[in-house]
Design a protein around this nucleic acid. Structure first.
Length: 642
RNA sequence: GGGCGCGUAGCUCAGGUGGAUAGAGCAUCAGCCUUCUAAGCUGAGGGUCGCAGGUUCGAGUCCUGCCGCGCCUACCA
């Protein structure tokens, strides 16, 4: 609503300036810092001042006097040394809001692919993975809210070194057979992903103490790549089981995917071979004959010595496979996966996984026009190599549409390490934060964190609602815990290193997810209480015409609140544009704050004046709807009670 | 050495394309529950926006240099 008026005003000024001064000016609309300056401010006079060689104030005066009426606008005022401040017609604005907005047309031909989560399937997910998944999932929700077509991919590297290391742990260190590991999986007392977490750390430290055992790793990798024998079967067993655990962990956060492209299929379907031919044919890589990279296929340009794509032993590096995958995402590889359904989510969405066997499903993925790779900032260099690869192949357009949606890592604060009983080296203790390391087994497991949050929320909920069923309280506590976690991970902008602090993450007060939920729950409570008293929710359309709205909105307080609540779309759109889910989180908080304030200040159900009461109820209902909508974009559900 | 990022209140962080008196949460202090849920609300204190220049009507924001911190810079992923 707010957004469409902004556009109207901008184009009205644009047209007028074109006619009056013959200047084609992109008219910006700002929001005044002080609310009593009006709802919008046009700084166009400043921009014109240079070209016209006149004082901004004088130009602003001319513009305001001559532009004529603009629909929805009540008044134009010249202020400061050249701002034109705009006051909207409040009654008309509110009446429009009540009528409901015309849904965003959207529906462009664009198909956006977002790849996120991408956890190596060799251990339990940790807090760093949660930041990735939450960021990716929220960004997807933001774009889908704007009517975009988005496909979510979660890449599974089920044949890599990390999986191999856990297999080494089972096979060489623990001397477990395939059947032994199957038994382990069947044992309900064992959390398999946690077991692997420890085993991975164990194997890593074993290599360190016994470097002579490193050939185990390459032998295992070769067996996995060849795809035969017990070791290969073991690798599949481990990876599949851990993937299943990750999906379950992510589902707790309401994170869903459309497809899991797996490295094993990239291997078996020879995606790399196609990409390799393409790269050679178009001279994007060359065979190095001297220096330290002698015998390798190298991509030039990125560093002095170039980036090795194919090692001297003929095996391809990770980046090479990534280039093939990126080509596939754009439909440029000339090859495709086959797919089979893996599971169906509660909302009906089907999750597919790649396979190398032809299937009759007719399902298709990929062929995107834009690709977002949600990958942490430490991998910027590799992402640059992938994009450079596309460019070297002549795919400049796709290179431009390949976006590394990067974010900084989650580290642990020293206090957090102390709380968790993690002992630090002398060196680490001096640092502002400590990097999470799967290899060292250093980190906070995602499920443990969620469990702590739920336990804490449950304590609160049951003390407030001792009479409600335990099962119901648990459901509410879970919703609160997840909201707290998602909000915590989203409130930081992407390039901020999160020094994870348990105390802070466990907080449900102030700028948190539960605060947002609480505000919406209160709004709902009022509407419910009204019905419990035997009153009916008024027919707002009938009782509040624009004249009534205008009377009520003479109150600056009400007007400012309504204005704030009507900006969901512009907030989300600008957050999509800047690629910052944190901006949506912040907006949700501001919305909640505004309603909390309103709730505290005005008595709604007990308001004696009928028109005012109906208006207050309408505001309550409007806020409720806007809070729920913004919450759902953040992946935050509003509980029944709190 | 090179590349990227960061430095804003005691702490943790926001501050689209330069714009009006630099904001929020936490913490601290002082108030508000017989009245729609106190996971809340009101108020107070707290700032040389790392430092120094530059660009202009105007700089936390743009440019240069310096200082401090982090990440990356593998024939690991």
């Amino acid at each position: 609503m707010f957004h469409s008026i902004e556009k109207q005003i901008s184009s009205a000024f644009h047209a007028h300036i074109q006619v009056r001064y013959g200047i084609d000016l992109e008219v910006a609309i700002e929001q005044p810092r002080q609310s009593d300056f009006g709802e919008m401010a046009v700084p166009a006079a400043f921009q014109l001042a240079k070209q016209l060689r006149q004082a901004p104030r004088k130009i602003a005066g001319e513009l305001a006097a001559e532009i004529g009426p603009i629909p929805g606008v009540a008044a134009l005022e010249v202020a400061g040394n050249g701002y034109i401040n705009i006051r909207l017609d409040r009654g008309a604005y509110a009446a429009d809001l009540m009528r409901g907005e015309s849904p965003a047309a959207g529906g462009s031909a664009e198909k956006i692919i977002v790849e996120h989560t991408n956890i190596n399937p060799n251990k339990a997910a940790h807090i760093g993975h949660l930041r990735n998944a939450t960021l990716g999932d929220t960004f997807v929700r933001m774009m889908r809210a704007g009517g975009q077509r988005v496909e979510v991919q979660n890449y599974i590297d089920n044949t890599g070194v990390q999986v191999a290391d856990v297999v080494v742990g089972f096979h060489y260190l623990e001397k477990k057979s395939l059947a032994d590991v199957q038994a382990l999986l069947a044992d309900p007392a064992v959390r398999f992903d946690y077991y692997c977490w420890d085993l991975y750390a164990h194997t890593s430290s074993y290599y360190k103490d016994h470097p002579e055992s490193l050939p185990w790793r390459s032998a295992t990798l070769h067996a996995i790549e060849a795809g035969v024998g017990e070791v290969a079967a073991l690798a599949h067993l481990v990876a599949d089981a851990v993937v299943k655990a990750h999906l379950k962990t992510m589902l707790r956060l309401d994170v869903e995917y459309d497809v899991l492209p797996r490295e094993s299929e990239i291997l078996h379907l020879k995606f790399w071979a196609s990409a390799f031919e393409l790269l050679k044919e178009r001279k994007a890589i060359y065979s190095e004959t001297e220096g330290k990279n002698s015998g390798c296929w190298v991509m030039p340009g990125l560093s002095e010595e170039g980036k090795v794509i194919v090692r001297s032993d003929g095996t391809v590096t990770y980046v090479g496979k990534d280039i093939a995958y990126q080509l596939w995402k754009f439909g440029l590889l000339g090859k495709d996966f086959y797919y089979r359904p893996l599971q169906t989510y509660a909302d009906g969405r089907v999750l597919w996984v790649t396979t190398d066997e032809p299937t009759a499903t007719g399902q298709q993925f990929g062929h995107g026009t834009r690709v977002f790779n949600v990958i942490d900032a430490r991998q910027s260099y590799l992402q640059d190599v992938v994009v450079a690869g596309l460019r070297a192949l002549g795919y400049n357009e796709q290179a431009d549409q390949s976006i590394h949606f990067n974010y900084e890592m989650v580290a642990l604060s020293p206090r957090c390490c102390a709380d968790l009983g993690i002992s630090l080296s002398e060196e680490d203790r001096k640092r502002p934060y400590v990097e999470v390391s799967g290899r060292k087994g250093l980190g906070v497991k995602a499920d443990d964190l969620m469990d702590s949050l739920i336990a804490k929320a449950l304590e609160e909920v049951s003390s407030r609602h001792p009479d409600d069923a335990a099962e119901k309280n648990l459901r509410v506590a879970t919703q609160i815990a997840i909201a707290a976690l998602r909000y915590f991970l989203l409130k930081f902008t992407r390039n901020t290193v999160i020094a994870f602090d348990l105390q802070e993450a466990l907080s449900f007060e102030g700028e948190t997810g539960p605060y947002v939920q609480y505000s919406a729950v209160r709004a709902r409570n009022i509407l419910r209480k009204l019905e419990e008293r035997g009153e009916q929710l008024p027919d707002f359309g009938k009782e509040l015409d624009s004249a009534a709205m205008a009377r009520q909105l003479k109150s600056e307080d009400f007007w400012q609140m309504l204005l704030a609540a009507s900006k969901v779309d512009s907030a989300v759109e600008s957050a999509v544009h800047s690629g910052e889910p944190a901006h949506v989180a912040r907006y949700a908080f501001q919305l909640a704050q505004a309603y909390s304030n309103f709730y505290q200040k005005y008595s709604i159900i007990h308001e004696p004046d009928r028109e005012r009461k109906v208006f207050l109820l309408w505001m309550t209902d409007f806020f409720r709807a806007q809070l729920e909508r913004t919450g759902s974009i953040l992946g935050i559900q509003i509980p029944e009670y709190m």
